[in-house]
């Protein structure tokens, strides 16, 4: 199954997640536009997926035994690009082409442009339903050993399409489907609970017939454990409500919804990279 190292220890995975965050900052600064908070908050989840959870082969993106990862919240794609590069899908040098003319790394992901990108997304609320179709298709193909993971934002749960899909997954007992909800409590115009309250979020999913797991989405081990547990739940689809910190790892971005749809300028990027390089001052303090 490809060249992705599987035996990485947690500390090594955390190092990769941190490197991915630094790449995200560099990509966004160079692009001069894009979303910061979501991708930074999702770095741990994407690292866990690509380096531990997913069955995939970066050298053969269309491998017919692969698991499927759908990114529903397409605006978070910089973290997926960076993680794919780290996993070996393409050279990290290409990351800097994000949002540039002629790039495979479009501002929002496009399936036809980049091998390994399972769907085109950006307009919100349609990833879970595509994932449902994939899970159904795998069932019809007698390939239920293949898993479908979908990463979605909390803001896109405002979309009716999300809940149409939630009902369908429950109706058809799609037990090879795992929805990872990036519960970072922000969306573009503010906190979710002010723009359009979602709570009690876990109760909502449970009432729709899903098995719900709540985790710290910035804890790589917790992500890995939850996805392992999801495989043991055979009677229903599984929703992992992953509590994440928007802008995670960059002090001045964390929890601030203004960073949802904004990139860092040069000065801010330098500051962010320094903080990430020193792991929030931890490394330096250890040396002092």
């Amino acid at each position: 199954m490809g060249k992705v190292p599987r035996q990485l220890k947690t500390a090594e995975l955390e190092k990769i997640a941190n490197d991915i965050r630094m790449d995200v900052i560099k990509m966004l600064e160079h692009a001069g536009s894009g979303h910061s908070a979501g991708p930074l908050g999702l770095a741990d989840i994407f690292t866990a997926l690509y380096f531990k959870i997913l069955k995939h082969d970066p050298g053969n993106p269309d491998w017919d035994e692969r698991d499927i990862l759908v990114l529903s919240s397409g605006h978070c794609v910089p973290v997926r690009y960076a993680t794919m590069a780290h996993a070996g899908y393409f050279d990290k040098k290409e990351l800097i082409s994000l949002r540039q003319f002629g790039t495979r790394l479009q501002g929002h992901p496009e399936r036809l442009r980049l091998p390994g990108m399972e769907t085109t997304s950006g307009p919100l609320g349609s990833g879970l339903s595509q994932a449902c179709g994939m899970a159904l298709g795998l069932r019809m193909n007698k390939a239920q050993h293949r898993w479908v993971y979908v990463v979605m934002s909390d803001g896109e749960l405002d979309e009716g399409n999300s809940w149409e899909a939630a009902m369908l997954a429950s109706k058809y007992k799609l037990n090879n489907l795992v929805a990872i909800i990036d519960r970072n409590n922000i969306q573009i115009e503010g906190p979710t609970e002010i723009v359009m309250p979602l709570e009690d979020l876990s109760a909502k999913w449970e009432s729709f017939g899903w098995h719900v797991l709540e985790i710290d989405g910035n804890d790589i081990e917790a992500v890995i454990d939850a996805c392992a547990m999801a495989k043991a739940i055979v009677e229903r689809p599984v929703a992992i409500v992953a509590h994440t910190i928007p802008g995670k790892g960059v002090d001045f971005m964390e929890y601030d919804f203004h960073w949802h749809g904004a990139p860092p300028n040069h000065e801010q990027a330098v500051k962010a990279l320094k903080e990430l390089r020193t792991l929030g001052g931890k490394i330096r303090s250890e040396h002092q």
Partner: peptide, 28 residues
């Protein structure tokens, strides 16, 4: 019947579930 999916009164779901099935080699 095993190749038919009833999505309910949900046209957004109708076409997007269809898209997912097509991604897995089906002609929906």
């Amino acid at each position: 019947p095993e190749r038919f999916i009833q999505v309910g009164v949900a046209e957004q779901n109708l076409v997007t579930v269809g898209s997912g099935l097509a991604a897995m080699g089906k002609i929906p």
